[in-house]
Amino acid sequence: MEMIKADKLIFEYEKRDEEGNVISTSRAVDEVDLDIKPGDFIAILGHNGSGKSTLAKHMNAILVPTDGSMWVDGKDTSREEHIWDIRQSAGMVFQNPDNQIIAAVVEEDVGFGPENLGVPTEEIWERVEESLRSVGMISYRHHSPNKLSGGQKQRVAIAGVLAMRPKCIVLDEPTAMLDPNGRKEVLKSVAELRQKENITVILITHYMEEVVDADHVIVMDHGHIVMQGTPREIFSQVEELKRYRLDVPQVTLLADELRKRGLDVPAGILKKEELVNALCR
């Protein structure tokens, strides 16, 4: 069974006048089909306004499709009775680290999700400890979130989602507001999660460097899925990526230029080491 499945999903934002009549609608997501299997690491790429965040919010039933449908863990998100199950099985991490931490102490914030689920007290403590350990923030458990760096806050937010024991975690541009070090920290935690806990990860971003380790990359533009495939397949089409206003990683760009000038370099180079190996052959 698919972890997340979308079938011709359409979502329209409505603009209303003061009487509440619809003046205009704009389609943020247009006939998107998705099939995400348990344990996959999927990256969704797209420029601002491509509909990637809107799509992400469907995976947590924060938004429900205008037309078409979305299933999370086999449950239809438009059915009211499934909403809490869906939110428990597909946790969501948002962009702004400050605006998603609820409590004034790190460990209490991580406990917020399990508290809402009605988990017994002793088990909440176990879960909090385990989640903080797996993102490497256990030594900060008694700290105030205000004193942490952006990357640390984002890791606390990830721990907060983990404590709900989700099957799938959706990260909606988790690194957009962080400095390079914070970005590295967060991505490292996400990578570790995948290896250790075998959780399905859906990473939404517009930094292409972050997607090289994904199993599958989806590129969105104007609400449509315009490209999909393995990172290598995607990155070998440099010209097309540029058309969607995405910044191709420098190594890939360099390899592409070299290839155009007649050097024998394979298409879709993702990492520095690969280029070095290809050139020194």
Binding site: N60, I62, W84, R87, Q88, G91, M92, F94, N96, N99, Q100, I102, F112, G113, N116, L117, G160, V161, M164
Partner: peptide, 10 residues
Amino acid sequence: DLAMAMEARC
């Protein structure tokens, strides 16, 4: 944002 994050955490 906070309201959304709270709802997302059930």
